[in-house]
């Protein structure tokens, strides 16, 4: 071991500082948690995308992943549990110029927000979902979630979970998502590229990020540290781009199929709406004019 050089890097700015609320850093996430890495990948993708910062809005729900909105120096909304997607839907429809990203966890998106997820996918709503899947509700102390693999032990499944988990890529694929990918918190480069593709992808995109949860999921299941989980991802991930999503289910500590599974073009909700209405209503159709300008006098 080597001595610490405490002066190192103190006067320098992190390359992503302009995208982060530095007055809120350090964040709440535990050592070895993959959410920070995923946020890092997301902000790197935002930086690379060339989309002006003012045109990106981040919406998150509740839970560990829900805190992400509080750290990004973008228009960011920390909403209620499960309702990030409908909030994002309203945001996107009321200002179609925005690139709207939902950053939320597996419990938030798939349990309490499951209905919103499948309907946003069905509509091909032009929003981007980054789903942190750490297989449990971590913020509340580690209860099992709709993605917890069978046999995994958690506080509300002390003898192991006996529920069948969702195969998330298959779920959103079958509901009509037009971009579906899954990576782990280890696949930072591929994850960044996927997020970058998703940001430019018109329509509903969904990226599942298998993320390490050392404090709860790993501890309850004696899987070691965050680093041990990353090592497990390295040894057990199989990249299968274009894989049939039906075969992407996750079993406890078994092989993980990752990759970009779906990338197809389909008219978005907004496109379909405007095109259909302009045909059926004809000349009388007045498309949505965008939000208020923000300059009107308030007449106090």
């Amino acid at each position: 071991m080597k001595r610490l050089d405490v002066t190192l890097g103190q006067d320098l700015r992190h390359p992503l500082e302009e995208y982060l609320r530095m007055d809120r850093i350090p964040h709440v996430w535990c050592p070895g948690c993959g959410i920070g890495t995923t946020l890092n990948a997301f902000l790197t993708a935002v930086k690379k995308s060339g989309i002006p910062r003012k045109d990106i809005a981040v919406v998150s729900g509740i839970g560990c992943s829900g805190r992400a909105a509080g750290y990004v120096k973008l228009d960011s909304f920390h909403t209620t549990h499960g309702r990030a997607i409908p909030f994002a839907t309203g945001l996107k429809l009321a200002n179609p110029k925005l690139t709207v990203v939902v950053f939320a966890g597996d419990g938030d998106l798939l349990a309490i927000g499951g209905n919103h997820l499948i309907h946003a996918a069905r509509r091909n709503m032009d929003i981007n979902i980054i789903c942190i899947n750490n297989f449990n509700y971590a913020m509340t102390g580690g209860q099992f979630s709709p993605t917890t693999p069978e046999k995994a032990r958690l506080t509300t499944a002390p003898y192991g979970s006996y529920e069948h988990p969702f195969n998330v890529p298959f779920l959103v694929d079958s509901c009509g998502a037009t971009y579906v990918a899954r990576w782990t918190a280890l696949h930072v480069r591929r994850l960044t590229n996927s997020i970058l593709e998703a940001l430019h992808h018109p329509g509903f995109s969904f990226i599942e990020v298998i993320s390490s949860c050392p404090t709860v999921y790993a501890r309850r299941n004696r899987l070691g540290t965050g680093l041990d989980l990353l090592k497990f991802y390295r040894d057990n991930s199989v990249i299968k781009n274009g894989a049939n999503t039906r075969e992407c289910d996750i079993r406890f500590q078994e092989q993980l199929i990752v990759g970009k599974f779906v990338d197809q073009e389909k008219p978005t909700y907004h496109d379909t709406m405007t095109e259909y209405l302009s045909q059926s209503v004809g000349k009388r159709y007045v498309p949505y004019q965008g939000p208020m300008q923000g300059k009107e006098e308030d007449g106090n």
Binding site: L4, V6, L8, G9, Q10, L12, H14, I25, P26, C30, P31, G32, C33, T37, L186, T225, G226, L227, L230, K231
Partner: peptide, 18 residues
Amino acid sequence: EVHIVINRCKGCGFCITY
């Protein structure tokens, strides 16, 4: 050249390992 903000680090070891 590597720069480290020492007091922001939580010692997960990801960078060291990978």
